[in-house]
Design a protein around this nucleic acid. Structure first.
Length: 261
DNA sequence: ATGGTTGCCGTGCAA
């Protein structure tokens, strides 16, 4: 099974790019974030030929997640977090029992101080609530995959400059520690770092750059995690860096893993 | 230290 996660930054605007993604990497499952559309207006028609199975949870203008699949799933769902109905979680279960969770973690604004910045406080609250939930759900033999835009680049090799970003939201110690607790809550394996533990890897480059490739000030914000029961089934990963140059590109690029399930 | 761009909508806000 080939699974892609991609912050598409408006699924209506960029639905045609899903054809590019299919031609280049032929994922069986695509998990999207920032779809920015209510479920009634989700572009099912243009996607149904390629992805017959779809599960979307969206809202108007902001956030929104979706799972597109060539492989049938039996169960669909998604929770609300921090008492908000803001469409940051979608989940499906495939025949055979593998559970897939797609998250869009709050970005957290600009100021990394929860007392001064409500959006940063929300991000930390979201991670803490998610951590508690994962710990409660954890089972030793569970076959689960967690993907999404987690909006945190935890390792030094996940950012273009650890020194210059250590106080920037997405790479601060308080966020990295929170993500570490979340990962420990279900003993998650970082599927990309499983194959490339030290290599500098990015999945996002800001729009606010004249030449993203030349400056290469990227961050790895998009992640794929699997439970220990699936660790031995991982076959490889791919980051579609060239997608950052597609016409009308998203600021994130697709991250893929291949897993034998 | 500042400002740089994009998408949602039709204004600022979130990223």
């Amino acid at each position: 099974m080939r699974i892609a996660t991609w912050n598409i930054n408006s699924v209506r605007l960029r639905a045609p790019l899903l054809d590019e993604l299919d031609a280049l990497a032929s994922p069986d499952v695509v998990c999207l974030q920032e779809t920015k559309v209510v479920d009634e207006l989700f572009p099912h028609k243009v996607l149904e030929a390629r992805y017959p199975y779809r599960h979307a949870r969206g809202m108007k203008g902001y956030n929104g997640v979706a799972i597109l699949s060539k492989i049938p799933f039996t169960k669909t769902g998604g929770r609300d977090w921090c008492g908000r109905q803001d469409a940051r979680h979608a989940t499906v279960t495939f025949k055979g029992g593998v559970e897939l969770h797609n998250f869009y973690v709050p970005a957290g604004g600009d100021v990394p101080d929860p007392a001064a910045n409500d959006k940063f406080a929300h991000k930390l609250d979201f991670l803490a609530e998610l951590t508690d939930w994962l710990a409660a759900e954890a089972k030793p033999r569970a076959r689960r995959i967690l993907v999404g835009d987690l909006n945190i680049a935890p390792l030094e090799a996940d950012v273009w400059s650890h020194k210059q970003l250590v106080n920037a939201v997405s790479h601060t110690p308080v966020e990295v520690e929170a993500l570490g607790r979340m990962q420990a809550a279900h003993d998650w394996v970082d599927a990309v770092r499983h194959f490339a533990p030290d290599e500098q890897l990015f999945s996002w480059w800001s729009y606010r750059s004249k030449d993203w490739r030349a400056s290469n000030r990227g961050r790895r914000l998009d992640h794929v995690w699997v439970t220990p029961a699936l660790k031995g089934k991982l076959k490889g990963f791919e980051i579609l860096t060239d997608a950052r140059d597609w016409p009308k590109a998203s600021d994130h690029v697709p991250v893929l893993i291949e897993i034998h399930v």
